[in-house]
Simulated scan of single mutants.
Amino acid sequence: MEELRDRTVWKSDPHTQVKHLVYRHYLQCWMGKILQRFPEATIVDAFSGPGIYTDGPPGSPVVVAKTFLEHTAYQRFGRLNLVCLEERADRVEELQRQFAKLPRSPQLQVTVQPPGTFAEQQPRLSALAHRGRAETPVLWLVDPFDLKSAPFSLIRQCLAGRRDEVLFTLFTNELHRFCQRENFDKTMTPYFGGDHWRAAVAERRAGSRKEAFAAAYQQGLKSQDLFTGSFGIKISNQSARYHLILATHSDAGLKCWAPVTWKLDSYSGQGASADTADALSLFDEASVVDRLDVALRAHAGTEQRWETLSSQAARLNHMDKHLRQVLDNLAVQGLAFRVDPVRARSAWPEGCTVRFYAPGDVADEAS
């Protein structure tokens, strides 16, 4: 990491490529939903970098711009304001050169800020992103070089507006390696916004501890009444190098997040490596919907609208197809019935109402 700090442009790595794949998939959905509903929206890349790697792949701000320009619904989009911040002047100059190579579009407004740090510039970036309108949707990409550059207090500021979202790179590998180092708690506590990270230290295995740190960070977000998702970026069968954390004010944001995670990791929807992203799984997904099955069974004795069930599935990082899969299984056991509409072309159409029963309700009294 220190070596990268000394260079204007550096070589890409597999972790970065998977991360940018997540970005592209999420942006495809986010842009499709937001830019066809609102006349204007903003994406802030708070640690933009030079926009290019020495071996050719584009950096994150160029990935955002190209995703917008190449989107199939581009002609129906409102305006996207892309605001980029980079600390070093040489990288700012290179980023401007990279943007100059892209096609011009009246619907895409790119603003490369003068060199500056995220901590100093966040309030100004927020004002610029919202353009004086609190309702303007803003997506923050926060991918710092180190833990100290993006404390939880800054992430919370990025989420001040009710249509603000953050996609944050959580350095779980560094957290695992250094969490027991003397005085490192002075870095950890501001990073998490509290000392709830300490419970994760008890985990001894690298993979388990990293996942526990990701869960602890999400715990902090949930305490702010935010919805959150997590996805591990790893190499081959190793534990995650870091996690991408989504924070949003609405479970509608999770409706974009879940398909991304399941597309890149079709077995668990929890993490992808460079050699498994976009690969087909050899496993049956039934084993990973257990939490959703338990959650639906808890509705025994009640009727639930499809919208409620779909939102519940999204909060558990599942898609509607998983919800239908679990409902099919419960229906076979006599534990779930569609009560409205009476007639439909599919078993569980959007807008339907489902009544749930407990196993005791369907027990054979004669047995």
Rank of each mutant, 00 (worst) to 15 (best):
residue 154 L to G: 06
residue 290 D to E: 15
residue 105 S to F: 02
residue 338 R to H: 10
residue 190 P to D: 10
residue 323 L to D: 04
residue 73 A to E: 01
residue 319 M to P: 07
residue 175 L to K: 03
residue 364 D to M: 13
residue 310 S to L: 12
residue 298 A to S: 01
residue 185 D to I: 04
residue 236 S to M: 11
residue 220 G to S: 13
residue 172 T to R: 13
residue 261 T to P: 04
residue 185 D to K: 03
residue 239 S to F: 01
residue 353 T to I: 11
residue 95 L to Q: 06
residue 158 C to G: 15
residue 208 S to E: 15
residue 248 T to I: 07
residue 242 Y to T: 02
residue 26 Y to T: 09
residue 176 H to A: 10
residue 82 L to D: 10
residue 200 A to L: 07
residue 330 L to V: 10
residue 188 M to K: 06
residue 296 L to V: 14
residue 124 R to A: 15
residue 66 K to A: 09
residue 105 S to W: 08
residue 310 S to Y: 05
residue 315 R to V: 13
residue 272 A to L: 10
residue 145 F to N: 05
residue 91 R to E: 12
residue 161 G to C: 06
residue 282 L to K: 09
residue 167 L to S: 12
residue 256 C to R: 09
residue 310 S to E: 13
residue 110 V to Y: 06
residue 173 N to E: 15
residue 101 K to G: 01
residue 228 T to M: 11
residue 131 R to P: 03
residue 8 T to Y: 05
residue 186 K to P: 00
residue 92 V to A: 12
residue 245 I to P: 03
residue 216 A to E: 06
residue 278 D to P: 07
residue 179 C to G: 02
residue 101 K to L: 15
residue 296 L to F: 14
residue 338 R to N: 06
residue 72 T to D: 15
residue 146 D to V: 12
residue 267 Y to F: 12
residue 255 K to V: 06
residue 275 D to I: 01
residue 253 G to M: 02
residue 257 W to K: 08
residue 291 R to Y: 04
residue 155 I to P: 03
residue 18 V to P: 08
residue 30 W to V: 07
residue 224 Q to H: 13
residue 180 Q to R: 14
residue 8 T to L: 09
residue 244 L to D: 10
residue 345 R to P: 08
residue 237 N to W: 11
residue 240 A to K: 11
residue 306 W to G: 06
residue 87 E to K: 15
residue 17 Q to W: 08
residue 349 P to D: 13
residue 127 A to K: 14
residue 253 G to V: 06
residue 311 S to N: 12
residue 1 M to A: 15
residue 63 V to T: 01
residue 15 H to D: 04
residue 103 P to E: 15
residue 323 L to V: 06
residue 344 A to V: 09
residue 155 I to M: 00
residue 96 Q to T: 05
